[in-house]
Simulated assay, not measured.
Amino acid sequence: MTDHRSAPDPHSTDRPSEDTLGRVPEWLRRPAPEVEPGRGDRLRIALGGHSGKLLGGVVVLALLAFFGLVGGLGYQGFQRWREPAAEHPTVGLPIGEQASSSASPPPAAGPFDGTPAAGFPEGAAGIALPRAKRTGPFTEKQVADTLAKVRKALITARLDRTFFTAKDPERLVRQFAPDARAGVRDDFPTGEAGTYATRLAPGARLTDDQPRVKGRISYRATKDRDGIRILEVTTNFVWAYAFPTTSPTPGDGVLVVHDTVKWSTPHPADVTTASAGLWIERADSYTSNIDCAALDKGLLALGKPSFGGPADPDPDAVFDPDKTVDLPDTC
């Protein structure tokens, strides 16, 4: 016969009585109130309901992003590995206030800055004489005397500011042989003297800066077309003059003359006393950045900036003594 009475609780002896615990407070006997789930709770519930699919998608996206990043870094690293490493020396940054240079270049310190003439010697320092030695029928002393005469004439003709503006050219003319002076004097009214002498146009003036000079001098013993023995001296110089200008562009105030001149002194045994001394056999020149109207008269004045000629587009060519002076007329 089955007994339908409840089976005794095997742990009843271990459960403390209400008297032992004391009276349970009333608020513990009440059921917990239902609280409306918040936004965070709803999100957690939603994630919980779709944990399988959504979590899997999130993991896939994270893995893709990770491998994409690693792949990108790996490609960049590969590219760097393929290219040779470049050396870039660095210095530690100083402590304190700092300033970086601006993109604008500093203003030019002088009129020749920014042109090849900035590295040329100043004035007569650029006229160096070769060592004098016996050449053909000319003694060492005769060679030295001729070289000294040519240098003195160059200084007067191209560097003497008093001569540049003098009413007459006698400061230079009297340095030639007596028989040569008339021809030299006649070169000035026609403008031919501009190939070997500097004369400023009315109103033109130079800055206080010394002209810059670069070139060379050579000599040889030869004969002229009349068979007279002569010591021929060839000078090849670039003369750069600075004129006042408001232009900030380097070189805009620089006028350049490049000349080659063949000077000579005849052997004293072959000529009369009046013909003994300095002569000019030939002179050629090229001028840039010049006023063309003044050039037609053999005078110098600053013109429009224009270095180089149509046959030589290099703007620095006119500063090079090794370049030809036989360039097309740009005036």
Score class of each variant (00 low, 15 high):
residue 2 T to V: 13
residue 3 D to P: 08
residue 4 H to M: 07
residue 7 A to T: 13
residue 8 P to C: 05
residue 11 H to Y: 12
residue 11 H to K: 10
residue 12 S to C: 06
residue 12 S to T: 05
residue 15 R to H: 11
residue 20 T to L: 06
residue 32 A to M: 01
residue 39 R to Y: 05
residue 42 R to W: 01
residue 43 L to E: 11
residue 45 I to Q: 14
residue 53 K to G: 12
residue 55 L to H: 08
residue 61 L to P: 09
residue 62 A to W: 05
residue 64 L to H: 08
residue 64 L to M: 12
residue 65 A to I: 10
residue 66 F to A: 13
residue 66 F to W: 11
residue 68 G to H: 06
residue 72 G to E: 11
residue 80 R to K: 09
residue 81 W to Q: 09
residue 82 R to M: 11
residue 87 E to D: 14
residue 87 E to V: 07
residue 88 H to Q: 05
residue 89 P to Q: 04
residue 94 P to Y: 01
residue 94 P to W: 00
residue 97 E to V: 07
residue 101 S to W: 09
residue 103 A to M: 06
residue 104 S to N: 13
residue 105 P to Q: 05
residue 105 P to L: 03
residue 108 A to C: 09
residue 111 P to T: 08
residue 112 F to G: 07
residue 113 D to I: 02
residue 115 T to Y: 02
residue 125 A to W: 04
residue 126 G to W: 03
residue 127 I to F: 09
residue 128 A to M: 13
residue 129 L to Q: 08
residue 132 A to E: 04
residue 134 R to D: 07
residue 142 Q to H: 06
residue 143 V to P: 07
residue 144 A to M: 00
residue 144 A to F: 02
residue 145 D to W: 01
residue 148 A to Y: 04
residue 149 K to F: 02
residue 150 V to R: 07
residue 153 A to V: 04
residue 156 T to Y: 02
residue 158 R to L: 05
residue 176 F to W: 04
residue 178 P to W: 01
residue 180 A to M: 03
residue 182 A to H: 09
residue 186 D to L: 07
residue 192 E to A: 15
residue 193 A to I: 08
residue 194 G to F: 06
residue 195 T to P: 12
residue 195 T to R: 14
residue 198 T to V: 09
residue 201 A to T: 14
residue 204 A to Q: 15
residue 204 A to K: 07
residue 205 R to Q: 15
residue 207 T to P: 15
residue 210 Q to C: 02
residue 212 R to A: 02
residue 213 V to T: 09
residue 218 S to T: 15
residue 219 Y to H: 14
residue 220 R to H: 13
residue 223 K to L: 08
residue 227 G to D: 13
residue 227 G to V: 04
residue 233 V to Y: 02
residue 234 T to C: 10
residue 235 T to P: 10
residue 236 N to L: 02
residue 238 V to P: 12
residue 240 A to G: 02
residue 241 Y to M: 05
residue 244 P to M: 07
residue 247 S to K: 14
residue 250 P to T: 03
residue 255 L to W: 01
residue 257 V to E: 09
residue 260 T to I: 06
residue 261 V to I: 15
residue 266 P to K: 08
residue 267 H to M: 04
residue 269 A to N: 15
residue 269 A to W: 09
residue 269 A to L: 13
residue 269 A to G: 15
residue 271 V to R: 09
residue 273 T to N: 14
residue 274 A to K: 15
residue 274 A to G: 14
residue 277 G to A: 06
residue 279 W to S: 12
residue 287 T to H: 02
residue 291 D to V: 03
residue 292 C to N: 10
residue 296 D to G: 04
residue 299 L to C: 09
residue 301 A to C: 12
residue 305 P to A: 01
residue 309 G to Q: 11
residue 309 G to W: 02
residue 310 P to C: 10
residue 312 D to K: 00
residue 314 D to G: 03
residue 314 D to V: 00
residue 319 F to L: 00
residue 319 F to C: 01
residue 319 F to D: 00
residue 325 V to P: 11
